[in-house]
Computed example of a mutant assay.
Amino acid sequence: MDQPLIGVPLRPWRRPGKRERWMQTPDFFTSVRAAGGVPLPIPPMDLPGVRALYAMCDGLLLPGGKDVDPISYGAAPREEETLPDLDIVEIALARWAAEDKVPLFGVCRGEQVLNVALGGTLYGHIGDLPGVGDHGGDDLPTVWHEIEITEGSLLAAALGGVRATVNSRHHQAVDRLGDGLRAVAVSPDGIVEAIEAEGDWFALGVQWHPEEASERATGGPLFRALVEAAVDASVEASARSRPAV
């Protein structure tokens, strides 16, 4: 397989007085395409329909977006806008991928969805934590900062080292890790900047936005790693299903 199908969830978009639309930032699609994959849009519809599209995917990309609803990880509601219907779809996708070992890459919100899907929790607002530096936000300018990466991790292998400079624009972050996940990158102030699955499942989540930094070391390599993992997983699945001679 040369061009694996990579599922990319769309998000609902509403304007007062207008009909709902489904959309996604083009950067995610162009990043997957540039890495050699074919993006497959997955709209936030009923779960049986989502499941049918998921079954066609060789890998999944969970994009950035609105805050994950705190109710989904047992926390009190906050004032920030959430999209509960999208949470249901993306959490289901992450759980199916974990069960089937389908390669998954989560970006910003996508990292947080992966963590919540596997039983983890989030900090609702890292600005409330003592000693945390500037990580930007949805309505704030992008901030660049260093991260330290765990040696021997998928992330270190993809980026070719244990240090990187990343673009930051978030106010939430991973708190308690989900089952089977480990933190593999932190910022100087201790915020978890990347997580990945333990064992043989390719599941990686990063807190920054590599789709906006394709000219930097933290861009293309991560999407290529997802596409390569999707190809490998598809080849292995085909070999397992091939009748014995």
Rank of each mutant, 00 (worst) to 15 (best):
N167I: 11
P16T: 07
A239G: 09
G124I: 02
L122W: 05
W201V: 09
L93T: 03
D189F: 06
S187V: 07
M45S: 09
R33T: 10
D2K: 13
E236F: 11
E90A: 12
H209I: 08
A185I: 02
R21M: 10
P84I: 04
T30A: 10
E146N: 14
L154N: 05
D200E: 15
F202G: 05
P70N: 06
P84A: 15
G219F: 03
G133Y: 05
Q207T: 01
E111L: 15
A35T: 09
I42E: 01
P9G: 08
P70Y: 04
A225D: 07
D100S: 15
G133P: 01
E198R: 11
P221G: 06
P141S: 11
P12W: 10
V231Q: 13
S214H: 08
G74W: 04
C108P: 03
R51E: 15
T165N: 00
T218I: 12
E148K: 10
G127A: 11
D138V: 15
P48L: 11
H135R: 07
T25S: 09
E148P: 01
R240N: 09
F202L: 07
T142S: 09
R15L: 12
A230Y: 10
D67P: 13
S238D: 10
F28Y: 15
G59E: 04
G180P: 03
A225L: 10
V186P: 02
S241K: 12
A94K: 02
A92M: 10
G106Y: 00
E79P: 03
E146C: 07
P84F: 11
P26R: 09
Y123I: 08
E236H: 10
A164E: 00
E198V: 14
V143G: 02
E81Y: 02
G59F: 06
T218L: 01
R33F: 06
A157L: 13
T121M: 12
A203P: 04
H170M: 05
I91T: 07
D27K: 13
E211C: 00
C108I: 02
G131Y: 01
A75I: 12
E193V: 05
F202C: 06
D67F: 05
V38P: 03
G133R: 10
